[in-house]
Amino acid sequence: MAIMAVAALFHARFPLLLRHSVPSTFSLSSVIYYRRTVPSNGLSTRLCSILRYSSSVDGGGSSSGDSGSVSDSVSVVSDVQSPNYLKFTDDELMKQCRLETFRVSGPGGQHRNKRDSAVRLKHLPTGIVAQAVEDRSQHKNRASALNRLRTLLAIKVRNKVDLDAYAPPPELLQILPPKSTIRTSSGSQIGPNNPKFVPGMQALLDVISASDGSIADSAKLLGLSTGGLSRLILSHDGLRMAVNSMRASKGIKPLK
């Protein structure tokens, strides 16, 4: 439920819109370098830079506010194939993010006893923001925020699909119910609470988007009955909301 609360919250702020321009501000300003010594004895391999974490006091981010040109419910399919962000490891994904913590102004560190270990991740290539506040350690909030980011990426970023030569990717096959006629493996169906559901959900949304929100057309491609696909969509709140906003933009009534 918490995931959905966040998804709903940011749905309002971040339209279903894919941005390709990486903000030019993607320069990590968090490390200040002093003397750069290049030792002669091979030490240089040891001299690593530690700059994975950037931070910023800039709260909102400039790319989030300009939603005027596109209606909130429209998902923009890009002409260029975007990287599939869900395929990145946690570390790689983290490097594409700006991490922000919520804190009052002041010196921090030993000065403060601050129970607020909330974490906010801004995925710079897409402008999508995910946050987590409920855990007691910043470390765990970071992990939760990253999981939420994956869900939001799956929901908001649409990859282009060629319906004429469509072959469902394995991550999609494994979330389909066993009844599906295109399901080749006998492995059990991955349910909505499994983290592996998320990449499958993204691929499913890509198909539904390419089919202009039609459940019947998508179901055919996936070897399912319309009812079977509807049940799958309704099993995950974020998936249901994404499909319904897609349908709303095409003037089709929502699934219930």
């Binding site: 490390v31 002093y34 003397r35 030490l43 931070s55 006091v57 913590t101 974490v119």
Partner: peptide, 30 residues
């Protein structure tokens, strides 16, 4: 970088915390 520690360290860096405060000093012994 000064006095008797002048030639002791390399790659001295200041690393900021999540709030953007220049919190940490890091480096390597030469």
């Amino acid at each position: 970088m000064s006095n008797d520690l002048k030639d002791c360290f390399s790659d001295l860096k200041i690393v900021s915390d999540f709030a953007g405060i220049n919190r940490f000093v890091t480096g390597f012994r030469l």
